[in-house]
Amino acid sequence: MEILIALLIGVLFSVATYLLLTKSLLRIVLGTVLLSHGAHLLILTMGGLGQGAAPLLGQEAGSYTDPLPQALILTAIVISFGMTALLLVLTYRTYKAHQTDDLDQLRGRLDE
């Protein structure tokens, strides 16, 4: 199971990196979204997958899944929501101000 998810994480990271390296701002935002999905899955996988019940002690199961990665990811999800929103607004404000979303045209130059 872990091997399969590790491969999926690899795919998510690859696509996210590719999107981040493009010159279009919207693709970059989408890239960060995929990157955070990949990172969340990575953290979860590192804790081990599918061993035991959900970490709710009321269930009184014999073993539980690791709650710590879940807590970390929960924080990460909410943070990445804030980041995505900020980047999104940044993107469209940049687009409106400069009439382009091409990073090649937005680049700052040393002489300026």
Partner: peptide, 21 residues
């Protein structure tokens, strides 16, 4: 180059995950 870097990153992350597991 973008494609190669991206695949590199993906393979790297997978390898890292598998190795640490």
């Amino acid at each position: 180059t973008n494609v190669i870097i991206s695949i590199g990153v993906g393979v790297l992350v997978t390898t890292m995950a598998l190795s640490s597991l």
